[in-house]
Design a protein around this nucleic acid. Structure first.
Lengths: 147, 147
DNA sequence: GTTTATGCAAATATTTTGCAACGTT
DNA sequence: AACGTTGCAAAATATTTGCATAAAC
């Protein structure tokens, strides 16, 4: 099932409506894999397809997509909330971020080693883990070589 | 060396000055271990000791402490940046967070399993990792039992 | 005495909300 | 036809900045 079909189904289940605006916003996010767009970025991209849209609709839709777990949010400590499609590989695993402290580049990684960690934490703390967000800060290959 | 002594030394090295306000802000953070205070929370606590302080000074000092790596920031997706002392155990390991999706409680954990992960990522991607932030979302023991 | 820091107020910037008009089911 | 959604503008919120005064070195 595509993201869009999934979205329609989730909306229907909740008695909510599919609209042009909602469709375009999810479409734009689908067209920007591995990017980390701010609400403003998304607003600008959506306006190319639907110039009359208001930014309030963008915010409301992003909140909705986030509640439906179709998108994830990311905080890069610069005062913007950033958005990206969740579970790009359909495995249910979220991807995580490598943030270069020199050039600011953000790479993605997916990693199953974290599952050992989850298990260990569940045993130790009694906490049942559902999801996680991981950010690694360091220097990317290029910047590392320049240092 | 205490946090306060460390702070004074770092300030001196940078040609900056130790002030009553800066001292009190670090003191307040030291008195609230494992809490996740917003700038406003800290402002209120500091005002009990120094009523004339302005919130701008609190923000400026938190930014400074953050740059000096004496404190860490935490984003709980509620629109506030939260602050806590870094490296509570002096091991240089940062602690991480378990966030209960039911009651909102935030627990801490420290985990060395992540070091395997860092190593693996460094080999795979060429990224040199310096620090990381991990948030685990799930249900705490109490909430899990009530479900 | 020089330079950095503070407090206040105003400015910025992001996100949210109220409401009348509109679109979807 | 009923109800959810949109766009606009205004409001709310968190954080930053300019500047004259005060404090630290």
């Amino acid at each position: 099932m595509t993201n869009m079909e999934h979205f329609k189904e989730l909306l229907k289940n909740k008695g909510l409506k599919m609209t042009t605006q909602r469709g375009i916003i999810l479409e734009v996010l689908s067209e920007c894999p591995n990017q980390h767009l701010t609400a403003e970025d998304i607003y600008e991209l959506v306006r190319k397809k639907q110039p009359e849209i208001g930014i309030a609709t963008v915010y409301r839709t992003l909140q909705l997509l986030s509640e439906l777990e179709l998108i994830d949010t990311l905080d890069l400590d610069d005062g913007f909330v950033r958005y990206e499609l969740a579970g790009t590989d359909g495995s249910g695993h979220h991807h995580h971020h490598l943030i270069c402290m020199s050039c600011g580049k953000v790479l993605e990684f997916e990693e199953d080693l974290l599952e050992n960690l989850e298990e260990k934490i569940e045993l130790t703390t009694g906490f049942k883990i559902y999801n996680h967000k991981v950010k690694m800060y360091g220097y990317c290959k290029d910047c590392k070589e320049k240092l």
